[in-house]
Write a protein that binds this DNA or RNA. Structure first.
Lengths: 195, 195
DNA sequence: GGGCTAACCGGACCCTGGTCCGGTTTCTGC
DNA sequence: GCAGAAACCGGACCAGGGTCCGGTTAGCCC
């Protein structure tokens, strides 16, 4: 879970709480390597970490958030890259190039951590589209698209494009349909160009 | 080699089985009217129908399929309409008009039965994208899009467009973002036009 | 009607995500 | 160092989807 003190500073975690969070994350990583993503059940993680289930849920809220915590670093790197990183993903390149690069970077992220990303996406629609990560992506795309197609069309297009970058969707394209990364990237690029 | 019935299992349902299927569907409808979609738990339906849980699962397989059965009629009407119905949804109109009409018809379907449609969509990606209904929609869109943008781009675009017609996605646009049906239709139409 | 088989029935059971609350530990202020 | 409060802990508990299997019943052929 993200810990940015946006308005007022939240009191720091107690020592035992921090210790348990660390133990839980390590346990989850261990289970992940040993049994893959589906081996990560909440019971198993709590047991492996040697704490109770309640502790796990208090620290991470729900299963999706636990998975989010497992890829938080990569996620932050990605956000950093498209907000302040080098062109074409970051500022400086033409908008259409940035949009294309955004998709390609997301494909790469999914290639590397697809299973975790899919599990970290909340199933409940309300949680999903209200999730800070989704909002961040959306805000970025809306900003770029506004320059490209105007502010009237931008918001809807941003959501449609994000649907095309959904981990489950991309994994389906790659693994079920058997598309190569190159084919996927070309499809995305042409989609961007046609807007 | 076992003789495989190519289209459908020819053996009819046993009388008690058919009776129970009917009772279960009626029970589900009753619960739906009384408590809404989330009132339809598998236990509740079985209990309301006066049969065991096992019977419910043998008849419908899983929860999503039960919901699918509840809107099967409307779904069939929709399929009939875009395959053999009057233009512009059916054959006879320009391809771009048919694509536009397809989206608008889907919006209407979601407007009328959004909750049921959302619940009838399998959560598991494998089941979802392999579902007969998804395949039908996809095949239709691929055929239309092939005329519009060529057979190279058509398959990928079909999947992207279907993602934009996902019930949860549309409900999010309507209820969370507060878009009117008209705004949604305009967004879709412009998306089609830009391809 | 009687017997045979396959299909069917029901509900006990399992799994997993998520909640609750009585008891414990850490931190703060004195 | 001590007392009190707030935060935290753990595991029993709950709900809901899905499975299993011993017992039952419908359909069929004699």
């Amino acid at each position: 879970m993200v810990e940015l003190p946006l308005v007022e500073s939240p009191r720091p975690e107690r020592a035992d709480a921090a210790r348990n969070r660390e133990a839980l994350l390590e346990a989850a990583h261990r289970l992940l390597e040993r049994d893959g993503p589906e081996g990560i059940t909440m019971d198993a993680v709590a047991c492996e970490a040697g704490v109770g289930k309640g502790t796990l849920f208090r620290r991470f809220g729900d299963r999706a958030s636990l998975f989010h915590a497992l890829i938080d670093d990569r996620e932050r790197d990605f956000q950093e890259a498209f907000i302040r990183g080098p062109a074409p993903l970051g500022p400086g390149a033409p908008v259409s190039d940035r949009l294309t690069a955004f998709g390609h970077a997301m494909f790469q992220l999914i290639e590397d951590h697809g299973a975790l990303l899919a599990e970290s996406t909340p199933v409940t629609p309300g949680l999903r589209y209200g999730h800070p990560v989704y909002i961040t992506y959306r805000t970025h795309l809306v900003a770029l698209l506004t320059e490209q197609v105007g502010e009237r069309r931008a918001p809807y297009l941003a959501d449609v494009l994000l649907a095309a970058l959904d981990p489950d969707f991309v994994i389906y394209q790659r693994q079920v349909l058997g598309l190569s990364t190159g084919e996927l990237e070309r499809g995305w690029a042409q989609l961007i160009d046609s807007l």
